[in-house]
Nucleic acid binder design. Structure first.
Lengths: 124, 124
DNA sequence: GGAATATCCGTACGGATGTACGGATGTATA
DNA sequence: TATACATCCGTACATCCGTACGGATATTCC
């Protein structure tokens, strides 16, 4: 609130239009916390891997991704807390898989399409 | 590399399968830096607003979002740097709009679908 | 039942990120 | 040309986030 604080919208119609359609701060926060969970190289590759092979344990996941088991464990912790990943315990190994209610658009479009998009991006 | 370092994959087939399909670290980083840009309540609502009304100046954007002009200016700075937003100067006001090459899947699916998804989410 | 192992959890540290402030730039208007 | 104003830029600061380490838990094998 420090710069100008002009009290007259320059384009009141557009401001009103935008306000009407705008998601609430609460909805936006929920959405961004979801996106934040995917906005990490380790986590997105982890999710991608689970999307492909159904389930993996921490050690194998670390091998597949080429990162430390600590990193995988931490990533899984966050995803589990958010309900995006569930575990199945078999003996002493814990298998991880994407939750059944993993957001479909996130899986179909953001994950697969965006990976393809980023791959073929000519510039940047 | 500190926890266990088991040198035998428990499920070698799946590990290999995952490794083959996995995006490279470089591609993943490019993708996640893109997602990080949307993973912020101010920025995603800002993008959403521009998606709806084409173009707005900083002051009006601040009014529409209900946040400080500083916050909007900073958000625009990042989006501009990433090439997601472009500006048009008319007199002393600067109009901001989404770039023509704004990633379509991001716009169509992540933005619109996910906003809808998050809205109707019953649990969480 | 005891030893070994796969994994999880809590804590501490370094780096990245968002916010707040002051000044600079350029444009319209009188 | 001088003043007001919309916006941008650089800096300083607080906070958040990911990583690394140590210990705890549970399960299998001998």
């Amino acid at each position: 609130m420090s710069i100008t604080d002009h009290d007259h919208p320059i384009d009141p119609a557009r401001v009103a239009h935008a306000q009407n359609r705008l998601p609430s701060l609460e909805d936006a926060s929920r959405l961004t916390s979801l996106l934040s969970l995917m906005a990490d190289p380790v986590r997105i590759r982890l999710i991608y891997a689970l999307d492909v092979v159904e389930e993996l344990c921490v050690g194998d996941l670390a091998l597949a991704l080429g990162v430390s088991e600590d990193a995988v464990s931490y990533a899984l912790r966050l995803l589990r807390t958010a309900g995006l990943v569930v575990t199945r315990k078999e003996g002493r190994v814990v298998y991880n898989r994407l939750a059944d209610d993993f957001p479909a658009p996130l899986r179909d479009h953001c994950l697969r399409q965006l990976v393809a998009l980023t791959r073929s991006a000519p510039d940047d």
